[in-house]
Design a binder for these strands. Structure first.
Length: 589
DNA sequence: GCCGTTTTCGGCCCGACTGTTTTCAGTCG
């Protein structure tokens, strides 16, 4: 049971407590505990065995004994009892708009409703509207919520949300009443999965903005509409929230609506500690509620707000209450990688396996993007479903790439194709090509494409064996997750990271928007262990070069700097880095 | 459930919006 498992269980526990109607601060204690463990750089089991859980912030007697029990025995009685006592359907009901823990429990008490289908029936039979505290509108809203869930997903991938938010912002920016505008919320924090799109604008005429926004042709349904705030469902089923504030309040509102919720709580606490009061309108020199801007600390930009709270500027991606406050108060906020630092991608496909373009097309595309290098790493023979290359075809490809590079050199482009393979890690952890052939490649990415059903121990062993191989430069899409489609397979991340750290094996950050794998939650720890990152497009199509930007943003969320990422290196330095592991194994001079 | 250089008990971030009430609770972010 690793840190992420423990954190996830505490998170579940908090939701159950909420449904139970427990004291919200008790609930928060468990949520906080989850966050602390998620951000721990040491394995939780070490702390348990050394009896040092009490050193963690927010860990009193209860959390210490419960987490200790969980780590030692693999389960927690308190959690199991709680889960037993709460019907499974309550969790689904909680996700409906307008239903919180109190109303879910009320539905159970009054009508014995414990799941969505019973709730739907009760609404259709007009029974819900009769409950005290509900009414016809609540009943209608619940019914629509259930229908919406049947029709659309409630969560969306970042890439899809980015496209929609960009086009909305372009529209908003054309309106003369709009002064400043920005994306906000989890989108601005670049979470990989989003519930909705948050937008913020400043204006002297909020009403005009709200009216125009709710009348956009892309709006399918208006969920809420007030003087300064509106929520809509866009075509395609994505929810978008717009908030309008006065321009003076814009930096405060931007910080506030960017969140995260946990980050904001700490920001407010810092304000209180300084005798100030922070909300979306300002940072006020008053403990009382006020909108009097003459009492507001002057801030033109978000950075001014952080400064007023004795903090360095915290990039939005880091605002998860995951160590950013400690870093920002000690002047240790890392200078995060920029997507423009990227020099190329080291894991990509061509029409030799399952990619779309020829090598010549790929060269042309790379030159247009201004990349310094681009690796061709087609599938190996065992991935026959992807037209994987048998050894003789790979040899032919190596030779063709050599010829292409020669003509590129004569043209003086400075660009180079690198020859490689995304070689399958077979069921026993061995590789799909022999060492002689692997040794002829510039780049070897080792990935798993079959045998997902093996248990955690076997899968972990496969990756570790691959990492120990002297010709393997990096492990590809480690967790195998496909966002909103396929769960990650079960692996022991910590052991794999340790194997990579000790062998000098890099780990890929696969920038395909379905993958974003390895996940940002692991990168800070990986970095601290000395594991280097490679941001790869895993391109199968010319459009996929754009993933590099998404990948760099995900890396930022994982606290990575330019120097943590191999493919920010210029070509010659990269070539040297590619030799290190082979040198260590005595395969090169 | 946690925490304390005002506190070992009484706090714990803050405001908009909705729907159901008649002054506000619940939800949401």
């Amino acid at each position: 049971m690793d840190n992420m498992d423990v954190a996830a269980l505490l998170e579940d526990l908090a939701v159950l407590l909420e449904l139970k109607g427990e004291n919200p601060f008790k609930t928060r204690a468990y949520t906080n505990g989850a966050r602390v463990i998620e951000n721990l750089t040491t394995p939780i089991k070490n702390l348990v065995h050394e009896e040092r859980l009490g050193e963690l912030k927010g860990f009193g007697d209860a959390l210490q004994s419960k987490v200790s029990e969980l780590v030692r025995t693999g389960s927690m009685q308190y959690y199991e009892d709680l889960k037993q006592s709460i019907p499974k359907g309550w969790l689904e009901m909680l996700h409906l708009p307008g239903l919180g823990p109190k109303k879910v429990r009320l539905l159970h008490q009054e009508l014995g409703i414990d799941d969505l289908s019973a709730l739907k029936q009760a609404c259709e039979a007009d029974k819900v509207a009769a409950i005290k505290g509900f009414g016809p509108k609540s009943q209608q809203k619940i019914l629509e919520g259930i229908q919406f869930r049947e029709q659309y997903a409630s969560h969306h991938r970042l890439d899809k949300a980015l496209v929609m938010s960009q086009s909305l912002l372009e529209i908003l920016r054309q309106w003369p009443e709009v002064i400043r505008s920005s994306e906000a919320g989890s989108l601005r924090r670049r979470k990989e999965i989003l519930h909705d799109i948050d937008l913020l604008v400043s204006s002297r005429q909020p009403q005009i903005i709200i009216d125009a926004f709710t009348q956009l042709s892309s709006v399918e349904k208006i969920l809420a509409k007030g003087d300064t705030k509106a929520s809509v469902i866009l075509q395609g089923g994505v929810q978008a929230d717009l908030r309008v504030v006065e321009d003076q309040s814009f930096p405060f509102a931007l910080a506030y609506f960017t969140g995260s919720k946990e980050h904001n709580i700490v920001m407010r606490r810092r304000a209180i500690e300084r005798g100030l009061r922070l909300n979306e309108y300002g940072l006020f020199r008053s403990q009382e509620e006020t909108r009097d801007m003459s009492l507001c600390v002057t801030c033109h930009e978000e950075a001014d707000l952080f400064r007023a709270l004795d903090l360095a500027y915290i990039p939005p991606e880091l605002r998860e209450d995951s160590g950013e406050f400690e870093a920002a108060s000690n002047g240790e906020v890392p200078r995060l990688v920029e997507w423009t630092d990227m020099k190329g991608s080291l894991h990509n496909h061509s029409d030799w396996s399952d990619g779309r373009e020829t090598l010549e097309d790929i060269v042309q595309e790379s030159l247009e993007h201004g990349f310094e290098y681009w690796a061709i790493t087609d599938h190996s023979a065992s991935s026959f479903q992807a037209n994987g290359l048998k050894p003789e075809r790979l040899r032919a490809q190596i030779s063709q790439i050599r010829d292409l590079n020669e003509s590129l050199r004569q043209q003086g482009t400075g660009f180079q194709l690198l020859s490689g393979s995304e070689v399958d890690i077979l069921s026993d952890g061995s590789l799909d090509y022999d060492d002689d052939l692997l040794g002829q490649l510039d780049i070897v990415v080792a990935s798993i494409h079959q045998g997902f059903t093996q248990d955690k121990e076997q899968l972990t062993h496969r990756f570790i064996r691959a990492a120990q191989h002297p010709h393997v430069h990096m492990l590809g899409h480690l967790s195998g997750r496909l966002l909103l489609e396929r769960e990650a397979y079960s692996i022991d991340h910590q052991s794999i990271l340790e194997a990579c750290a000790s062998t000098g094996t890099w780990i890929e950050l696969n920038a395909n928007p379905y993958r974003l794998d390895l996940d940002w939650r692991w990168w800070k720890r990986a970095r601290d262990m000395g594991v280097k990152c490679v941001i790869n497009c895993d391109a199968h199509h010319r459009d996929h070069a754009a993933f590099l930007r998404l990948g760099a943003e995900h890396a930022r969320k994982g606290w990575l700097r330019r120097e943590d990422i191999l493919n920010t290196l210029p070509l010659e330095d990269l070539k040297e880095a590619l030799k290190t592991k082979r040198r260590m194994a005595g395969l090169l001079d």
